[in-house]
Design a protein around this nucleic acid. Structure first.
Length: 395
RNA sequence: GGCGACGUAGCCAAGUGGUUAAGGCGGGGGUCUGCAAAACCCCUAUUCGGCGGUUCGAAUCCGCCCGUCGCCUCCA
């Protein structure tokens, strides 16, 4: 998660450390008549809470109609759900007023959010698959217990990530882990992928889609590289329109696809400005800032990865041989000097190759020059010839 | 069976009543370059799953149908 540039939470409470709070809350619900105990289980009395179903737009009648499984006859109402479950043999359990047992599924969230975040949360997130029953029951428990409504001001339910034609889920076992995804794609590309559709829409994980985001990430990255100073005064690319566009998109229920479009628009204007000799300093700063809002780093994904020094050295040696056999001894020697110097880092090899290639280009030795570019490309080092000289980057 | 979400170009994806249907990827053409790369310019949906309806006007509202996904039981 860190690698994806996801911020850490301030607290990571554990259910097993919050058992007393949970028991207290269950007890409170029983005392207030919202729950009852049967044989060591405690059930929530759904009929006791008038608003039950308000989140998922369900009615008890409607849910009854859909019941397909056998109903536990001990429950007053088929939709009553467990707040506390008596322990089965072999299961971890805690002592409670109702005997040894463990919390029901929804209870932990109510108890912990109440303890750490208070009676009303501004925003509660979660996947769409949790709307019912989990969040519905959470509301019922918390609001019945505190008497405060609403317990949550905004629910942010995200569409589910699909792999193929099913939701990606731990229990189905059809997972692509973050770690696996990061092995193939940059964090920025993955973030762009997730943000490329509205958070409420379902999203299908596909290599094709993420690869296209990798290209898009590179485009934004290129735009913030080497901003141009406004040459003689006149034109400075203004980011104001795009900033406004970005903010409006985000304020509209986090319309990240539109926000990203604003980023791309700004990138184009920056590139155009560079082309026309306009200053792009503040536009580039703005692009970085807005991209940062989306958690994009705009860093080269491989910038931190070590270069393959020995492969580079081999390339230097092989190029030196080619130069010699072409009778370009002076150049061969300047390269030779580099690879003998053992302490030369990989950067030095690359710089030396670029400088030799520059000489070859002056001498119109295109074949040899292209061999250098091709050799570096095989090591995933891309060259770009600019008026200011040749630049290299990891590709 | 009940409830809900979704279906827009080759692909991804905004737009939810009215000027030319965002943006990205891919593709085609051009500029720059020794050639590339990067970048820029132009083109790439007369049409929004289908059929009806409402309206002066609909991708956008209503109805039906088709397709996909989720929830409706345990577990988290």
């Amino acid at each position: 998660m860190d690698a994806l540039n996801v911020l850490r939470a301030h607290r990571y409470p554990r259910v097993t450390e919050e058992i007393p709070e949970i028991i207290e809350m269950v007890k409170g619900l029983v005392d207030k008549g919202y729950a009852y105990s049967v044989d060591g289980d405690v059930y929530y009395r759904v009929n006791s809470y008038a608003d039950y179903g308000k989140l998922s737009h369900r009615t008890l009648e409607g849910m009854m109609a859909g019941i397909r499984v056998e109903v536990d006859q001990r429950k007053e109402h088929p939709m009553d759900f467990a707040l506390w479950k008596s322990a089965k043999p072999e299961e971890p359990s805690w002592e409670s007023p109702w005997g040894p047992g463990r919390p029901g599924w929804h209870m932990e969230c109510s108890a912990m959010s109440l303890k750490y975040l208070g009676e009303t949360l501004d925003i509660h997130g979660g996947g769409f698959d949790l709307v019912f029953p989990h969040h519905e029951n959470e509301i019922a428990q918390t609001e019945a217990y505190t008497g405060v409504t609403p317990s949550v001001r905004y629910w942010i339910h995200n569409g589910l990530l699909q792999l193929g034609d099913e939701k990606m889920s731990k229990s189905l076992g059809n997972l692509v882990t973050v770690k696996e995804a990061l092995a193939s794609y940059s964090p920025d590309a993955l973030r762009l992928f997730f943000l490329s559709s509205h958070y409420r829409s379902p999203l299908t994980y596909s290599d094709e889609a993420i690869q296209s985001m990798e290209r898009g990430a590179a485009r934004l990255r290129n735009a913030v590289e080497s901003p141009s100073q406004s040459g003689d005064s006149s034109a400075e690319v203004s980011p104001d329109v795009r900033r406004k566009q970005f903010i409006e998109a985000m304020e509209d229920d986090f319309n990240t696809p539109q926000a990203i479009a604003a980023l791309h628009d700004l990138a184009r204007e920056i590139n155009r400005g560079k082309h026309n000799g306009a200053g792009t300093l503040s536009a580039v700063e703005t692009l970085k800032e807005l991209a940062g809002v989306l958690g994009l780093t705009l860093k080269e994904p491989l910038a931190e990865a070590p270069l393959d020094s020995s492969a580079l050295r081999e390339l230097v040696q092989s190029i030196a041989r080619d130069l010699q056999s072409s009778g370009l001894d002076a150049l061969a020697e300047s390269l030779g000097g580099i690879h003998v110097a053992d302490e030369a880092g990989p950067d030095a090899y690359i710089e030396a190759l670029i400088s030799v290639r520059g000489e070859l280009r002056k001498a119109r030795e295109w074949g040899l020059a292209d061999n250098i570019r091709g050799g570096l490309a095989e090591l995933e080092i891309a060259l770009e010839d600019t008026p200011q000289g040749s630049l290299w980057k990891r590709s």
